[in-house]
């Protein structure tokens, strides 16, 4: 099993992701510079948070043209796992691997705080170690996390259980007050139709140690590891 953490100019959560995979999941992991085009040997990729290309034009818009992205599309099409966090989610949306777009937060501020998200679908490679309805405390840190999509896309996401996480209060209620950025339908994370590509704005890699206030993020990485094991067992 091998993980890869993709590094664009301006990525800044790459070392956190690397640390979590190597220390808490205990799996081999490499950094993958954005100019790399050979992803053979990898089973799961993390597209980390940060400010790729300085967020110029739109968050994630220019990273889409990095050489590694064509390889990531082939990687995803082959059924391997791609996990985008924060800027990684923005990049996956901009590159068309996930539907919709992430706009400026409705409150305009950069929001950096622990929030609660509810697990909406526990039957995915990223959430199998979690329970449906479970509430996780995970930090967010973004100015462009306001998920938008048209009615048709929203219906498709809902009908196929592709909304994986929703912002909620501590009781698991996805209220307006618990929505930190104006995201449509309190969406915090979605997956593609095949279920092997996940994007989410909250940072589970920053919630893997009690010392940091929460270790609720660990089960997401554990789920992903088990999914790779299952795939290897086939």
């Amino acid at each position: 099993m091998k993980f890869g953490v993709v590094v664009f100019p301006g990525s800044n959560c790459d070392h956190d992701a690397y640390h979590v995979v190597s220390k808490h999941v205990g799996q081999p992991v490499d950094f993958i510079w954005h100019k790399q085009t050979d992803l053979s040997g990898y089973d799961a990729l993390i597209v980390p948070g940060g400010f790729s290309y300085g967020d110029y034009l739109r968050a994630g818009a220019l990273a889409r043209f990095s050489p590694v992205m064509k390889a990531i599309k082939d990687f995803a099409a082959a059924g391997k796992f791609v996990f985008g966090v924060c800027n990684g989610f923005q990049i996956l949306c901009e590159s068309g691997l996930l539907p919709g777009a992430l706009m400026r937060n409705s409150g305009l501020h950069f929001v950096c705080q622990h929030i609660n998200i509810r697990v909406e679908n526990e039957k995915t490679p990223f959430t199998s170690e979690l329970d449906a309805g479970e509430v996780l405390s995970i930090p967010i840190a973004h100015a462009e996390g306001n998920y938008v999509c048209d009615d048709l896309t929203l219906a498709e996401l809902e009908d196929n259980n592709r909304i994986i996480f929703r912002y909620c209060d501590e009781n698991g209620e996805p209220s307006n007050e618990a929505n930190p950025n104006g995201s449509r339908s309190n969406i915090a994370g979605i997956c593609n139709a095949e279920g092997n590509v996940l994007g989410m704005m909250p940072h589970p890699e920053r919630a893997c140690e009690e010392l940091l206030g929460s270790n609720d993020g660990r089960d997401i990485f554990r789920s992903l590891t088990k999914a790779v094991e299952r795939m290897e067992g086939k």
């Binding site: 034009l57 777009a101 706009m103 999509c149």
Partner: peptide
């Protein structure tokens, strides 16, 4: 292809 995001 670049300047606009057709979603929004």
């Amino acid at each position: 292809d670049v300047l606009a995001n057709p979603v929004i």
